[in-house]
Nucleic acid binder design. Structure first.
Lengths: 223, 223
DNA sequence: AAAATAAGTGAGTGATAACTCATTTTAATG
DNA sequence: CATTAAAATGAGTTATCACTCACTTATTTT
């Protein structure tokens, strides 16, 4: 059974979904744009209809509720966000030793950064949803976190055995990886100016490698 | 003219504001809690009244609109957020040379992390507001960014001259500082589990020092 | 204690927004 | 072209929510 490559998840083409009329496609696109621009609650269904060039009733033809419409937008990305975040380390990559720390970091970030870049709007909508819905957040986390800890854990332990990575507890290492990703995401979503997005990926890899390289500054001084 | 120390901004005691009745104080507290829990739009004024143990009319006695109530909550923090983020480097600290990179990083993060920790709820409300209000975001940024770039810039240049900091463009250095802060903030606001918040400050300083220490991995490799 | 001022109340109001449905328009099929 | 099915429409319904106001209760002043 073949796992799909991460690149296949990029660039959702909403139009290739089954039989979907141009108007329905316009509704999905308008919703995504508006939710990302103004937020879910601040977007009315009449806003969506107007932006999509459609009557309001058309919005409700396929999606029973506004929330269902949001779910439909996020369906493709949520369906694959778990494997993208947590896996990709299970099979081939796990068994192959990482020759260097940089190789490990590159493996982690390359696809994930590209994925984030290709789905900024969707991620923003997810963030808004998850920020104020504790239940949903914990549900998602309980799916992702254990896999991540387990799969990444083995790789990290390998690197530790080879003295290729800093001797921190694994959760701290994971935390710095995540923290770095969050910082990057925030920049994308808030459209912070003065950022050459193009150099981001290389920058992230450089910084992350630097953080995790064993060295003299590794002692975490208490306060 | 004495500038207030950052510690003075911590821990807003809403009750010490002028003449404020217990009920008004309860309204402010309930609003802050609910806005941070459920989000601004998902919180109705009747929710607030109920949580505060007050009639709905009472909410509107002092604050003309729901937005004005939010502004009132954020007033103290927004009044001081600019100096906290951007300054504290203008006078004494700027003139005194930083003996080490760690001293510089510690100076930057200690207060800011403590501030973030003491104002998680407020920051969450601000984030929600700013995330979907481009105008307001740019307005705030245009206030903060130039000061930050200017004041931090001089310090960074000094450290560069002494070869105490990595030879990256200043905006890239600033970006990594910010990115690190964002990552930390995200953890706070999303209440991500498995995080010993107490070690965060020491961790941030360690990591940031490591990132900015000049070394062999400084080349940012293109993709 | 009486008068005056301020604080608090909650039923009521207008507007908005999510959602419905009878009808019309478009597309598919024989 | 006629028939049928699907898609689209937009006026209408219902519920919620921000906000008001005439009135009551508490507090201060004289």
């Amino acid at each position: 059974m073949e796992r799909p490559r991460i690149r296949d998840y990029f660039q959702w083409d909403l139009s290739q979904n089954e039989t979907i009329t141009p108007k329905q496609r316009a509704i999905l696109q308008a919703s995504l744009d508006l939710f990302a621009e103004k937020g879910f609650d601040q977007t009315s269904t009449s806003d969506i209809a107007q932006r999509a060039g459609v009557a309001e009733g058309t919005v409700y033809r396929r999606y029973k509720t506004k929330a269902a419409l949001r779910d439909a937008i996020l369906a493709p990305i949520t369906a694959h966000i778990v494997p993208i975040l947590a896996s990709d380390f299970s099979e081939d990559k796990l068994r192959q030793r990482y020759p260097s720390l940089q190789a490990f970091v590159t493996a982690i970030f390359t696809d994930r950064v590209a994925f984030a870049k290709a789905n900024v709007k969707e991620l923003k909508v997810i963030f808004e949803m998850v920020a104020f819905d504790t239940e949903r957040r914990e549900q998602i986390l309980s799916q992702i976190a254990p896999k991540m800890v387990k799969q990444m854990g083995s790789v990290i332990n390998q690197l530790k055995a080879d003295h290729l990575i800093v001797d921190w507890p694994n959760d701290l290492i994971l935390q710095s990886l995540l923290s770095q990703l969050f910082g990057y995401l925030a920049q994308l979503m808030l459209e912070l100016p003065g950022t050459e997005i193009e150099r981001e990926q290389a920058y992230l890899i450089t910084v992350m490698t630097k953080i995790l390289t064993p060295g003299e500054h590794d002692q975490i001084t208490g306060q």
